[in-house]
Amino acid sequence: MAQENDPSRNPWKSNLPPPDLDQAIKQFFNRFKKWLPGGSPHAFFTLALIFVVGSVLWSAVYTVPSDSVAVVQRFGKYIKQVQPGLHFRYPFGIDSVQIVPVKRQLKQEFGFSTPNATDPNQSLRNIDPQRETQMVTGDLNAALVEWVVQYRISDPVKFLFEVREPSETLRYVSESVMREVVGDRTVDEVITIGRQEIESEALIKMQATSSKYAMGISIDQVQLKNINPPKPVQESFNEVNQAQQEKEKLINEARRDYNKVIPLAEGEKDQRIREADGYRLKRINEAKGDIARFNALFAAYIKAPTVTRKRIYLETMQEVMPRVSSKVILDVDSQSILPLLNLKTEEQANHE
């Protein structure tokens, strides 16, 4: 810190900030216009001066894309950040500029690689991708895990100067965190039901580690891709999965039949119970009605036995007689020896 504040080591020989580059270039152009000769004897000098000026402009002008910022260093020391657009710098290596894509979402792939990727740090080159995917789960089983980390550069200064090789460091951090998270779960959780929890936990731990190392990186998403068992046991694992799927299928079919038959039986049971209750109430009411009717007749019989007996007889005959198909009426005062009575039934008569 003492050396940084020492005026003798300051190339500008003062504690004042360095002059504005844009204004210095404008002053140079104004002076250059005064130097231009008006006659042909100075043509060679004019061409040489134009060449020098062109070289200076060629090395002094640079453009920053719209999705990036430029980090300017002067003799290796950080000076400032420059926003997108056309800018000037001190030429011939005095100022060096590094373009950092802060608004672009970058990604790193583990276990596979996208062909023709423009980012050299997106995947490993000339290395077997299965080296990253081979992991041991919490129940001591093996699994091949492929995943993608999507991130952005949040602080260009930290990204460039705080950590050496930040993109490669992020790969090591991501692989370490993913192995830790997968090692806390069973192989069934990793392959089937625990994918979302693994992604969320890995995202939190990766971001915490990146912040701890001051990498200047913001993790946006961790997404699991293909997760498979090792090739020697993959066929057996698929058979187990098929058996589990068949088991789930049979359970679902049994539940479907259960939900179809049981409610129907419950409905029939309720219907039978309601019918029995209705029949019970009907018999009880009929019995009570017969009792009331009998008591009324008995009271009337006590008051007038003869009339009541005759009325009961007539009412009974009025109810019975319509049901008789054929009727035979005999005169009790007849003096015939053998009254003619056809005893054959109607069916026998039709057969004859």
Score class of each variant (00 low, 15 high):
residue 156 P to Q: 01
residue 88 F to S: 03
residue 226 N to T: 13
residue 245 Q to R: 15
residue 270 D to R: 13
residue 332 V to H: 11
residue 71 V to L: 04
residue 107 K to W: 09
residue 277 D to H: 13
residue 276 A to L: 13
residue 320 V to Q: 06
residue 201 E to V: 01
residue 84 P to L: 05
residue 51 F to T: 08
residue 241 N to S: 09
residue 133 T to V: 12
residue 326 S to N: 13
residue 332 V to C: 08
residue 65 P to E: 11
residue 8 S to F: 10
residue 78 Y to I: 08
residue 65 P to V: 00
residue 63 T to P: 00
residue 226 N to Y: 03
residue 340 L to C: 08
residue 63 T to C: 06
residue 221 Q to F: 08
residue 264 L to H: 08
residue 295 N to Q: 14
residue 167 S to E: 15
residue 238 N to D: 11
residue 324 V to L: 08
residue 304 A to C: 00
residue 188 D to F: 01
residue 88 F to V: 10
residue 88 F to I: 09
residue 179 R to F: 00
residue 291 I to V: 11
residue 331 D to A: 03
residue 169 T to P: 04
residue 207 Q to Y: 00
residue 197 E to Q: 15
residue 299 A to L: 10
residue 152 R to G: 03
residue 147 W to K: 05
residue 308 T to N: 04
residue 89 R to H: 02
residue 116 N to M: 02
residue 113 S to P: 12
residue 52 V to S: 12
residue 40 S to Q: 14
residue 17 P to Q: 06
residue 25 I to L: 14
residue 297 L to A: 01
residue 341 L to P: 03
residue 94 I to L: 12
residue 24 A to E: 15
residue 158 K to L: 07
residue 106 L to N: 05
residue 28 F to A: 14
residue 185 R to K: 09
residue 328 V to R: 09
residue 312 I to Y: 05
residue 173 V to P: 03
residue 325 S to Y: 05
residue 224 L to W: 04
residue 171 R to P: 03
residue 53 V to Q: 09
residue 204 I to T: 07
residue 187 V to W: 08
residue 190 V to G: 03
residue 51 F to A: 15
residue 93 G to D: 04
residue 218 S to V: 01
residue 168 E to Y: 00
residue 327 K to N: 01
residue 215 M to R: 00
residue 302 I to A: 09
residue 68 S to W: 01
residue 29 F to M: 12
residue 227 I to D: 01
residue 163 V to R: 03
residue 346 E to W: 12
residue 32 F to D: 10
residue 81 Q to F: 01
residue 202 A to H: 00
residue 254 A to T: 03
residue 75 F to K: 13
residue 210 S to V: 15
residue 299 A to W: 01
residue 105 Q to D: 14
residue 200 S to W: 05
residue 63 T to D: 11
residue 15 N to T: 06
residue 178 M to G: 11
residue 108 Q to K: 02
residue 238 N to H: 06
residue 280 R to T: 13
residue 1 M to I: 02
residue 274 R to D: 10
residue 185 R to Y: 01
residue 54 G to D: 06
residue 146 E to L: 06
residue 160 L to A: 04
residue 29 F to V: 14
residue 77 K to E: 13
residue 8 S to I: 02
residue 262 I to Y: 07
residue 273 I to P: 00
residue 209 T to L: 06
residue 149 V to P: 04
residue 117 A to F: 00
residue 45 F to E: 14
residue 245 Q to L: 10
residue 141 N to S: 14
residue 223 Q to T: 15
residue 11 P to F: 06
residue 194 G to P: 05
residue 93 G to T: 01
residue 94 I to V: 08
residue 8 S to R: 12
residue 266 E to L: 02
residue 246 E to Y: 00
residue 37 P to M: 02
residue 49 L to Y: 08
residue 13 K to Y: 05
residue 232 P to H: 10
residue 169 T to K: 07
residue 135 M to D: 07
residue 72 V to E: 07
residue 234 Q to T: 00
residue 46 T to W: 07
residue 231 K to V: 11
residue 177 V to M: 11
residue 122 Q to M: 10
residue 244 Q to L: 12
residue 264 L to S: 09
residue 268 E to C: 01
residue 204 I to W: 04
residue 227 I to F: 11
residue 344 K to N: 15
residue 175 E to M: 09
residue 286 E to N: 07
residue 345 T to F: 10
residue 33 K to A: 06
residue 327 K to F: 05
residue 238 N to M: 08
residue 242 Q to D: 09
residue 117 A to S: 11
residue 171 R to N: 07
residue 233 V to E: 14
residue 19 P to T: 03
residue 245 Q to G: 07
